[in-house]
């Protein structure tokens, strides 16, 4: 069963010529249509996230400022990020769509969630919009689960590091954040040496990959580095920041994944989640055909539906970065433990 959150009314959050555009949602919907899931799709209407739900991860003053900025007509927040008059409402419904999906999965105790709304969220910090993101949708959902006593793993395979999510849960031991991303690339963070704050050492895991890296390398990074962390953490829920801009056709980055690689990654992630305890959140992905095929690959794989896949990619650079990342992470953890011991 697919629990589909959204899309709701997101179209008025749009800026001419911007790659984060309403057609992205249509592309994913088309990909879901390709799976021919029929009655296996349960649609959940987005609801507005409340202020109390948002302030678990965002500063109240930021929410006030963002709302005021939108109601003043919006505009460009920075070089990458825009808001319109309607964006405040759209963003709250986007965050709320994730909460609605979580609640429906909890009730059903079965199925897989997909939060198909926009704008994306993983760059949004507690107190600032950035990187196309206004509110951190996956973080709001994770905090909602933590408040219920759950342990949450957030796996982020967007091509950009989810600096906002990492920052929000930096010192939160009940949330494990795992990110694979191209590096160097925006936002510049996400080194293996970033391992979490003093109360959550090891609860942040970064897997940076060089431009040109292919699916074999990213799959190995997950199996060799992420699997032990996921197994040791023992998540009761797994949320996925599902950005599809690591696809080889994406215009904003230079990784070389195919829809077949996203299928492999999704299978790996799903193997660490219990029934009804897995939800994907749409982040990036700006080539509409690639987005359609890759989202279908994710959902077709985890739901066991027939899906046409591109051949998995291999032969790109980056194999050596896995061992380098392991050493850098071990060194950072050792240093942090030594510092903690001295304090």
């Amino acid at each position: 069963m697919l629990v589909l959150g959204g899309p709701g009314s997101h179209e008025s959050h749009e800026e001419e010529g911007h790659p984060e555009r309403p057609e992205r949602v249509s592309a994913v919907l088309a990909g879901i249509g390709d799976l021919d899931l029929g009655s296996e799709v349960v649609r959940v209407a987005p609801r507005e996230a409340t202020r109390a739900e948002l302030t678990r991860v965002h500063d109240g003053s930021y929410l006030d400022e963002l709302g005021a900025f939108c109601y003043a007509g919006g505009g460009d927040i920075d070089e990458d990020t825009y808001a319109t008059f309607d964006s405040w409402s759209v963003a709250r419904h986007t965050a709320g769509a994730g909460l609605a999906v979580i609640d429906e999965l909890s009730r059903a105790g079965d199925g897989v969630g997909f939060v198909l709304t926009r704008p994306p969220g993983h760059h949004a910090l507690a107190g600032r919009a950035m990187g196309f993101c206004l509110l951190n949708n996956a973080a709001v959902a994770a905090a909602h689960l933590v408040a219920r006593g759950e342990r949450v793993a957030i796996v982020d395979f967007d091509v950009h590091h989810g600096n906002g999510t990492q920052s929000i849960f930096w010192n939160e031991p009940r949330v494990l954040y795992v990110s694979s991303h191209q590096m160097p690339l925006f936002p510049g963070s996400g080194t293996p040496g970033e391992v979490g704050g003093p109360d959550a050492l090891g609860a942040t895991l970064n897997l940076p990959l060089p431009a040109g890296a292919t699916g074999d390398v990213i799959q190995r990074a997950y199996e060799e580095l992420a699997a032990p962390s996921l197994e040791a953490f023992g998540a009761t829920w797994v949320l996925v920041s599902a950005g599809y801009d690591a696809h080889r056709s994406d215009p904003l980055a230079d990784l070389k994944l195919t829809s077949g690689d996203f299928a492999g990654l999704s299978r790996f992630i799903a193997s660490h989640a219990g029934p009804g305890r897995l939800a994907f959140f749409l982040e990036g992905g700006y080539n509409l055909q690639a987005l359609r095929a890759s989202a279908a690959a994710t959902l077709g794989t985890v739901l066991g539906a027939n899906v046409a896949l591109e051949e998995r990619s291999s032969g790109g650079p980056g194999a050596e970065t896995i061992e380098r990342a392991r050493r850098a992470r071990d060194r950072a953890l050792e240093e942090a433990h030594e510092l903690g011991g001295r304090a």
Partner: peptide, 11 residues
Amino acid sequence: GHHAHAGLLLG
């Protein structure tokens, strides 16, 4: 910088 109007409100 280039996005002065937003900066006044959004930090």
